[in-house]
Design a protein around this nucleic acid. Sequence first.
RNA 1: GGCUCCAUCGUCAAGCGGUCUAAGACACCACCCUUUCACGGUGGAGUCCCGGGUUCGAAUCCCGGUGGAGUCACCA
Length: 551
Amino acid sequence: MDTKKLAGLLYPDAKPLEYWFKKYPSRKLKEGAQTTRFAPSPTGYLHIGGVYAALINSTIARQTQGVCFLRIEDTDQKREIEGGIQCILDGFNTFDVGFNEGQLNTQNGIGNYGPYIQSKRVEIYKSFAKEMVQKGMAYPCFCTAEDLSLMRKQQEEQKQNPGYYGKYAKCRDLTFEQVQNNINSGKSWVLRFKCPYTENDKMETFDLVRGKRTIPCNYNDVVIMKTDGIPPYNFAHVVDDTLMGTTLVIRGDEWLPSLTEHLQLFEALGLKAPLYAHISPIQKIDETNGERRKLSKRKDPEADVRFFIQQGYTVQAVFDYLMVLANSNFEDWRAQNPKQPLANFKFEISKLNTSGALFDMVKLNDISKNTISNMSAKQVYDLAYDWAKQYDAELASIMQQDPQYYINILNIDREIAKPRKDISHWAELKDMYSYMFDNSFDSKTIVFPQNYDKESVKQILKLYPNFFNSADDQSTWFGRIKDLAQNLGFAREVKEFKKDPTLYKGHCGDVSTILRIALTGRTQTPNLYDICMLLGKDRIKNRLEQCLNNL
RNA sequence: GGCUCCAUCGUCAAGCGGUCUAAGACACCACCCUUUCACGGUGGAGUCCCGGGUUCGAAUCCCGGUGGAGUCACCA
């Protein structure tokens, strides 16, 4: 078979490869710099696992002073959804991992190696497909879907491995005339890789996470150009990552089984394959059967980055958590360097775990609380307000009525050596401090614990306004509570009380607890002194009176 | 089913043949600090999937099970 002639028949107009290599010269990067990429399909919103992969890719690129780009893999029109690219961009707009290049907008993208959308690269793929044919490494196949499924059935019945290979590769040895006739009669065709390996061949592979492996080769004549003239993932990957200068492919380990196939395609074209690092997926426990599985877009709301955005998780907390999953020593580093940018952490690809980690919301919340506890009240206010404007109009309106008041609330037990750690995401903010606002404070719902006798409670509520002075510092303020306690037959000091509880109705702590409940409706709040100072004497008096009336 | 990957406390994990009566973090429990809550501190419970081998010695190496995940498309 004259492969040149065949190539001419199949791809008459394809540009020669040199054209593309000239158009996309190799990158001039310093020794050791890695070019990485994140390459999602526009099939829906961005997945948290996608952010994870993108974060690792961009981190490696940044640390080696390389490049990380975003490429859209839309070679399957059937799965693509309307606005898919925008979904991905929206996700990264919040979870900005710092791409240097690629499809960072819905127009032409940024960088000299575009287009970064695969559907716009068909001309390029054709050139490489033609090259494959010319080299005798590919051939057209006219088998229909029905032919293939029939064959598959037979293979299964005969306990043969299913696939298009060996004697099953019916179109492999078609003559030029047969091909020409088929094409002239309008039959649709795909281009298949003429795989030079058999079932018994093995291939040595290398993976940065797992090391050297010798594994069975792909022996299938896989499709490299579909009927629609667009390549599937395998060929697009080989062509794009070659031309875009990718040196390190970090991708999910679902690609591991097809690694030899990809390597073979690079080999067939005489191209140097990039390095690979296959990362394990983030998993969760399926509620229905209690088993581990990959976090799924369809089943798990927390797989969608919009979940984290809508809940008001900070980007830093989510990144920190993902970083802990990727390199567990990040956690210690973060404890030592609470305020340093993530970029200063020395990430190591070899420390990536080979087994998939379970996504742990509780841990995320903990990391998140730490993150937020290290922020200033103003920072918290700004971030939360930005979030609220979009996702919680009520909170936004509360916050902007009196920004300084809200900042003061946020500043309770904050900006100190051991700050309070209570906020994990903005969605819980409104409830958390609802008692600081008269609109959302209702004294009618307040109940005092049974163990306080009603008369004492009444006395405390009635008398406390006389013991409050808004000019007091904290110890003076509490001294007055002690005075009140003493006047009413409570122990002035807890220690005294503990010595002989029978002598007292309770102790000063009980008095402050009653006040706390009366003023906030809760038994657990930040520092009561700060709360009192922010509420001011009038509101204190007012709330205590309301309580009295309800008793 | 074939092939591939994986297997240490509930979770994330350190561990790379002796330093492992297995680190650390989250969660849990107790106590301490404290006017409450939180923070913080101290302590506790809790893990090497199983069976063989190799070795003076195995969580660590090898083999075999078992379990889980992934993949076997003109999807990525």
